[in-house]
Design a protein around this nucleic acid. Sequence first.
DNA 1: GTGAAAGCGCTAACAC
DNA 2: GTGTTAGCGCTTTCAC
Lengths: 335, 335
Amino acid sequence: LITIYDIAREAGVSPTTVSKVFNDYSDVSAKTRKKVLDTASKMGYFPNSSARTLITKRSWTLGVLFMERTGKGIRHPFFSAVLESFKNTAESKGYDLMFISQFIGGKKTSYLEHCRFRNVDGVVAVLLDLEQANVTELVNSDIPCVFLDYESAQAGTVCSDNINGSFQAVQYLHSLGHSRIAHISGGQNSFAGAKRQLGYELALQKLKLPKNEDYIAAGSCFYTEESGYRAMNQLLDLDVPPTAVFAAGDNLAIGAMQAVKDRGLSVPEHMSIVGFDDIEMSAFITPALTTVRQDTAALGSRAAEILIHSIETVCTLENVVVPVDLVVRNSCKAI
Amino acid sequence: LITIYDIAREAGVSPTTVSKVFNDYSDVSAKTRKKVLDTASKMGYFPNSSARTLITKRSWTLGVLFMERTGKGIRHPFFSAVLESFKNTAESKGYDLMFISQFIGGKKTSYLEHCRFRNVDGVVAVLLDLEQANVTELVNSDIPCVFLDYESAQAGTVCSDNINGSFQAVQYLHSLGHSRIAHISGGQNSFAGAKRQLGYELALQKLKLPKNEDYIAAGSCFYTEESGYRAMNQLLDLDVPPTAVFAAGDNLAIGAMQAVKDRGLSVPEHMSIVGFDDIEMSAFITPALTTVRQDTAALGSRAAEILIHSIETVCTLENVVVPVDLVVRNSCKAI
DNA sequence: GTGAAAGCGCTAACAC
DNA sequence: GTGTTAGCGCTTTCAC
């Protein structure tokens, strides 16, 4: 293991000078710099982040809190896409990513303690229960945080324009001639679910469509296919069923589609369906799902930018809303 | 920021004693231990991993090298599932996960340097080009490694039983009465692709089915839908087309299915198709895809176990093969 | 431009 | 059982 002392000795300079070279200090002569760099590469030197972190209190590490509620963790298609983009942006700015669990050495701790233990410079957290004491503690700490799919006055946040997305979905169905438009919601417990339902209601209002409580069927806040299936059945059992459904998530929509088929009906002939997310699967099912696409690349990179900005410059509590787009496929029909 | 010195002073003991308490040394009296623990929690103490790593040379961090070739990174449904399982096992044993990029401070380096920089105790790498100099260097280093979807004498590996899986697929089609069974391969450049093709060929041999070079159509080593689509068209253009196809990946199979449909034919009436992987989508497309399921949970946890074992005990170069199962759905028909 | 000295928070001999 | 001491590899005053 080669240290700056080895290089210093070999190059005939002091450890301080070696350190300065590796930290791009300007007060080192070009000649000395070259000599140091040469011997360093000759000896196979590489810096040690632990030693550096110990003294500078900067780890160049970002913590990733994957606290979603489906139990899918990193397999979750939406969050993994956002994380991939976050990761690329963070890496290009010199940061590495580390998952923050609730364990240290196999023993249970809080997220905050884990962050301090690892000296992370900042934290990105996805779809969490802000109620959980564990997280509140983190938000209230001095560690810069950015949250996905949330709005908070205490931390930076990034989320899709859920309301506008819902509006686009409903408006599209309306433009196709539908007036009995139902909603399969993600429940009021999830941030996105609440927003999307609100967007649905606002859209009805704006388009002067009657509001009908029966036309809002609650899916699970986990956005599961099964709950979409159940919700659709509930809607189909109505005396006057809707002709179109806007589901708060693609999985809900896919479950709903299945329910329609299982009644011997077909999509889009007997029922038009629009989803939200544009998960990969949506383009491949039959009929291909018309849905509101979330811009995962933008969500991830904006989150990284905000977080790094509040680490390096000043802790701005930005709340970014990323635009969404309706992707028209084959699950809707004009009537 | 509270250090062990603060606690030592407050509790009236030496820093060593405090350290011993936190490292579960047995030679501390119960009374002293309690006093230390109490003052520590009262003062809000937490250990500092950098300081600890600096002296022990153990970071309790595992590096994750996500070097797959589809460009999907962590979004890749198969690898993200394996990683999720790996992560859970690793965390339960006290390790945290960090992504290893080819950058330090935004500047390009090698994976090995990055690992040393971060003092990772071991590395898990997925689906990589072993040829890449960057990786060879890492494999040949003293850092314990485990590879997914690979076989190597130089490092621990974990992969599915590709050959047996292919055999099950072909045998199933054969049991349905098919004898003109084609293969859409993942190419010879990918480890899994080569194995699955070999399994296909071995199966034909064992079942005394004639081998026909035309019945092997190469898909992309990225296992894309488009390449499956193209390969299927190639097979359909044959004078005597196959009646069944075993595709080396679900995405290839899905592309193949589309090609059949686009010719006005249908699956499974005119063509039986079996895939490999069992990605989430496979259960939801129409017809639901019969496929060979990889046990991602086992792959991930076995990889973690092997890696941690070679870190903590001795560097065994285990090569684990995880069994697979055929999941029968609706994409095949008896003839 | 360059270097000597101190110290980040912790652990590991070793002495008591 | 407990404490003293040294030092992990690095950066940072501050003096020259």
